[in-house]
């Protein structure tokens, strides 16, 4: 297998190097790639969409259709993790802790499930007391990370960033919550159902905004036709449309990141994790 691998790799490498022979120089401003379409984008995009970040303008407007499927792909990944790993069966071996006394109960193979609440709480199998310092610091940092994520989503038009990046950062703040406390804190705080619904709703916002344009008399995703629905300057309607879809993307990505993390780290049982 190793030998075969080397042969295939060398063949591919040779082919690719052969292809580089006629490349224009790196950074050449007059290469065909930076002349044909890109000049049109750079010169017209700001004027037509009022969005200074050209990448966002192209991503969410000119090639918004790509981005829609990209979001679908993300949704799909979350759904796939759910479908593949989610395990609804209850574990027979359980650990409980009596909160007032701190006594740990080890229940083997019983059908009766203790009521979890004021007196008892669930316990992981390899239980580690969560570290006080990490816990406190994360408690302080997490709201700021979340605010920052929302800021990134909202400022996708003006600075680098956008729905996807903001969603990922928000998702990792939730992951941080799960790491610094334990997985159950996250799962109890935000239910699985909520994540599932949000993941779908996020993409639905995107597709929905696109679809509304059709009865308004435009093509799919043609935000300029939304002007009658939204108060404000019709000049900025495309920027507003982009903001709308980025919020959708952000919601979907947040939920999906959390779903993937929770399912992988707990093998789909949603009880204990990293």
């Amino acid at each position: 297998m190793k030998f075969l691998g080397v042969v295939i790799v060398c063949l591919t490498g040779a082919l690719l190097l052969y292809g580089t022979g006629e490349f224009p120089d790196w950074g050449d401003p007059n290469s065909p790639a930076s002349l044909h379409l890109s000049n049109d984008y750079i010169e017209k995009a700001f004027e037509e969409t009022q969005v200074p970040n050209l990448v966002t303008a192209v991503l969410a407007d000119y090639r918004g259709f790509d981005t829609m499927f990209e979001t679908s792909v993300i949704f799909c990944a979350g759904l796939a993790c759910f479908l593949l790993l989610r395990d609804f069966s209850q574990k027979k071996e359980r650990f409980y802790r009596h909160i007032p006394t701190g006594v740990i109960l080890h229940v083997k193979n019983s059908k009766k499930i203790l009521k979890v609440g004021k007196e008892f709480e669930h316990m992981d199998k390899d239980w580690v007391p969560s570290d006080l310092i990490i816990k406190t610091v994360c408690r302080i940092i997490i709201p700021f990370i979340q605010l920052y994520a929302l800021y990134v989503v909202a400022h996708g038009d003006f600075s680098p960033g956008g729905g996807f990046q903001g969603g990922v950062i928000f998702g990792s703040s939730l992951i941080l919550l799960a790491i610094s406390y334990d997985l159950k804190t996250l799962v109890n705080r935000i239910k699985e159902k909520v994540f599932g619904i949000y993941a779908a709703i996020g993409v639905l916002i995107y597709v929905g905004i696109g679809a509304i344009c059709m009865p308004m008399g435009g093509n799919f995703l043609d935000y300029s036709k939304l002007a009658p629905l939204v108060p404000g300057d019709p000049h900025h309607i495309r920027a507003l449309g982009m903001l709308g879809i980025e919020i959708g993307v952000g919601i979907a990505v947040t939920a999906v990141m959390a779903i993937i993390y929770i399912n992988i780290v707990s093998e789909g049982r949603h009880d204990e994790g990293l």
Partner: peptide, 8 residues
């Protein structure tokens, strides 16, 4: 953020 995570 404040509504959902004020207790952090």
């Amino acid at each position: 953020v404040a509504y959902y995570f004020y207790d952090l």
